[in-house]
Amino acid sequence: MPVSENSKGQKVWQLHTRNESLIRWFAYLLTVAAFMWCWAKISESTTWYFVWDAPRIAADIGGRALPPKWEYINELWVPIWDTLNIATLGTILALMMAVPVAFLAASNTTPSKVFVRPVALMIIVSTRSINSLIWALLLVSIIGPGVVAGLLAISIRSIGFCAKLLYEAIEEIDQKQIEAITATGASRWQVMLYGIVPQILPAFAGISVFRWDINIRESTVLGLVGAGGIGLQLQSSLNVLAWPQVALILVVILVAVVVGEWVSAKVRGAII
């Protein structure tokens, strides 16, 4: 109770009861302690000499990186094209797989809540939890380096993401519209077509564009593990410490990200 009496018998108002306050303070204490411990661990494995030297190193790298080596752009056109393809085709492929998974995972469309739904949810969780770079690493070691590995990595990572958002949209549809279509004597698939699909189409379009935007960002770094795209050039430039080239690649990536965001905002505006 927030109101208590002090030793003189006067009523005192407090926001929290004593126990609540104790718990709160304890939680704060615990957080601070955990943070300090973690920090000590980080500090242990850090060579502080380098850190104190960091401003000088940063200035040094900056000085060497600028100005970017603009003529290097001619060697980047193909990687840029590859990066775009990885993101776009990867998104398309992901959507093709995410749609059935989403229908199997949504509790109102799944054929079996006991057997099918957990499997679909498992696919969603496992593909979502693992970063596309790890998927790329895995695929490069399975099918070899190249654009295809990157494309597959992006699409696998996107399945869970798209399917999760999509199945939530399916679960939120208006059941009365389904009922009305069922009452006309429509078959199961026709109910899907006329009752469910129109209702989730806007969400589907929004999700696709949203994920495509994210995939543009992610596909720029897949090359670091050999999965094609502009990241390959980044990696090789870093390996030979060609900082002006690195600077140009970063500029290109920034431009790509900004353009991607602009396009996705435009498309979303047009659809919804």
Binding site: Q177, A180, A183, T184, A186, Y194, P198, P202
Partner: peptide, 30 residues
């Protein structure tokens, strides 16, 4: 059998994102 029973609903239950014509034609789905 359902084709022989037309149903009309309280909150209309039209498929809102389809056109009026598609909604009417959806009565032929059976």
């Amino acid at each position: 059998a359902r084709r022989k029973m037309g149903m009309i609903f309280q909150e209309y239950a039209l498929v809102e994102r389809l056109t009026v014509m598609e909604n009417v034609l959806s009565g032929r789905l059976g």
